[in-house]
Design a protein around this nucleic acid. Structure first.
Length: 260
DNA sequence: GTCCAGGTCGTCG
DNA sequence: CGACGACATGGA
């Protein structure tokens, strides 16, 4: 199938039909009015008023390998530093792309291939990973496994794989725990049932949903309990999509964070 | 100066 | 198991 084939007729950009790959990338197959369960409005009317503002939010179906490496850079540091790391990785190891815009050349960089990162020197790569050598080594090891074929990323695209099995498989890699595994599933595999629990999610589970587990320290056991709790509050098949809306709602409306 | 940020892992009681 | 420190930097 040609990826420039257009999708269903009612999607357009400036009057032009939308290519199917953009329809998929922006996950326009998902009706975000249908992401929260019916009873949510009744149970949490005040929260509903806040979170409905985030219904236009799209979860992108992003590149799997890029998603994997990007979230391996997202451990206990701010969004600003995460972006910086990914940019530096692309600029240092990614293919250079020059585009001309309004008569000016603009240099961009694609995200590197697994082979490219597999061949990276740990110390050199660590300058892109916030000087964290452990993180750099983990990224190289994961990239090497993929490049050598001992990990088959494409086999993970099978929708029949249960979420916990997927999570455990991804978490075999050093540097990937449950949270990052769930992020890879959600953003890289379009598994909208995956519900990553980070510091913000843990906070809103405690504040908005009175989860007592959220008051305990985070470890694999409490992570799984909160995951199960979230599936009773949300539609299990869209727990991650709804969670992402709640995540942004919490950060912007409550924490008043400007970056996203 | 202190605390927290899209965590994970090894170690110790 | 559960708690705790290391890993690293920067913005509030």
């Amino acid at each position: 199938m040609n990826e420039f084939e257009v999708c269903s007729p009612h999607y357009e950009i400036d009057g032009l039909p939308l290519p199917i790959f953009l329809y998929n990338y922006f996950s326009l197959d998902i009706d975000t009015n249908n992401v929260f369960p019916e009873h949510f409005l009744r149970l949490y009317p005040e929260l509903w008023g806040l979170v409905t503002k985030y219904f236009p939010l799209r979860i992108l179906r992003q590149d799997l390998f890029e998603t994997m490496i990007t979230f391996m850079c997202a451990q206990g540091i701010g969004m600003h530093l995460i972006r910086k790391q990914v940019s530096m990785i692309a600029e240092t190891y990614g293919e250079r792309i020059t585009v001309t815009f309004k008569g000016k050349d603009i240099v961009l960089h694609g995200f590197p291939t697994p082979e490219r990162l597999a061949a990276a020197d740990p110390f050199t790569l660590s300058r892109c990973t916030n000087n964290n050598r452990i993180r750099a080594s983990n990224i190289i090891a994961a990239s090497r496994s993929i490049a050598e074929g001992s990990i088959d990323l494409d086999s993970l695209r099978n929708r029949e794989i249960p979420l916990d099995e997927l999570r455990n498989t991804l978490a075999q890699n050093s540097g990937i725990g449950y949270k990052i595994a769930d992020c890879i599933a959600l953003f890289g595999l379009g598994r909208f049932d995956a519900f990553p629990i980070d510091t913000h999610v843990k906070q809103y589970l405690g504040t908005w949903f009175n989860s007592t587990t959220a008051l305990r320290s985070l470890n694999p056991a409490t992570y799984l309990i909160m995951d199960a709790e979230a599936r009773t509050l949300l539609k299990p098949e869209f727990a991650g999509y709804a969670g992402h809306m709640l995540f942004h709602c919490w950060r912007k409306e409550i924490k008043k964070l400007r970056s996203f």
